[in-house]
């Protein structure tokens, strides 16, 4: 291409314009460091990211379409695989929906068992966060420590449910079986050990200067933005939204146990980390109370096994109620 010497003049060929276009970098979906499969189209201006377009859907299964065709209780195994780090919580969600539809009463002991397992599951899930988060920030050792303790939780859950990751343990109207013998004692032992281990994490990360400088003031999410975008969970609580479903609309026996909901105002990565660390401690508190208060009694479902037909009719009743 030949460029006329006389025109354009240097003023029209402005260098500012060329620089302001930025540089587009594609991250993922096969990029190895992504957790979950996510693609990011980033626009950079020097070292600064000025725009980011996430592309998702690489793991989409059309689960809703599959669930349409199955009886309610056959869908419980699928929920294991929604958030595989906290399979039991997902089991509980679908069972609670079905229980509400069918007006099923859950035995008291089953409710306590559910809360106990949920909190163990929360610890396991948060530990994966801790490990991978540390790895991403250059604290690779954290991965090994966090997974060491996670294996202890998984051992407990495996003893109770028979699986390491996908438990399929909550049933409509209760839990499939009582806790194994001596389970309470093992959980108490674990709580004792884990309290100390949280102190170790604090030493490794919370008091680590490099870690702090890599998280404090980074990725600030103001409260208004977090609200408008419907953020939930630890992300919302780190941005100053005091929203925890266990307090706002308590389910099972969460209204009978004492625990605090950590809420921080700064909304940066550091705050989100601290919220999760505090949740680990609160989970231990809940577990101790639940073990102490757990009543004796039946815990298996005390209701007919809902076939799809029965529940369709119940749904119809519910739909009629919606429509009326």
């Amino acid at each position: 291409m030949s460029v006329p010497v006389s025109s354009p003049t240097p003023s029209t060929l402005s260098t500012v314009e060329i620089l302001s276009q930025g540089m587009v970098i594609n991250v993922g979906p096969q990029h190895p460091s992504t957790h979950g499969v996510l693609r990011l189209i980033l626009t950079l201006d020097g070292e600064q990211i000025v725009a980011c377009e996430p592309v998702i859907g690489y793991l989409h299964r059309g689960l809703e379409k599959m669930m349409e065709r199955r009886p309610y209780r056959h869908n419980i195994p699928f929920t294991d695989r929604l958030d595989y780090l906290a399979a039991l919580s997902n089991n509980l969600a679908i069972c609670q929906c079905t229980e509400r539809l069918g007006g099923v009463e859950v035995p008291e002991r089953a409710q306590y068992i559910r809360v106990l397992l949920m909190e163990l599951q929360r610890i396991a899930s948060h530990l994966v966060f801790l490990g991978t988060f540390g790895t991403d920030l250059g604290a690779t050792t954290m991965f090994l420590y966090a997974f060491r303790e996670r294996e202890m939780v998984l051992d407990l859950l495996e003893e109770c449910t028979g699986a390491r990751l996908t438990y399929n343990w909550v049933r409509v109207g209760g839990v499939p079986d009582d806790l194994p013998e001596g389970f309470g004692q093992k959980v108490q032992d674990f709580v004792k050990i884990f309290r100390q281990r949280i102190g170790e994490y604090d030493m490794l990360l919370t008091r680590n200067r490099i870690f702090r400088s890599r998280t404090q003031g980074i990725g600030v999410l103001p409260k208004e933005t977090a609200l408008a975008y419907g953020c939930s969970g630890p992300v919302a609580r780190a941005s100053g939204i005091a929203y925890d479903i266990r307090k706002v609309a308590p389910y099972e026996v969460y209204d009978r146990v004492e625990f605090d909901v950590p809420v921080l105002e700064s909304g940066d990565v550091w705050a989100r980390y601290l919220v999760r660390m505090e949740e680990l401690r609160q989970s231990l508190r809940i577990i101790e109370q639940v073990l102490q208060d757990m009543p004796e009694g039946p815990c298996r479902p005390n209701c007919p096994r809902y076939s799809s037909l029965q529940l369709v009719s119940l749904t119809r009743v519910w739909k009629a109620r919606v429509a009326s």
């Binding site: 096969q30 595989y84 994966v128 490990g131 991978t132 090994l144 997974f147 060491r148 998984l154 990751l165």
Partner: peptide
Amino acid sequence: LTFGLSCCAIEMMATAASR
């Protein structure tokens, strides 16, 4: 290759980790 997709990736991580 570090290449996890879903649940099995978590078990793969556990295989690589401490125990």
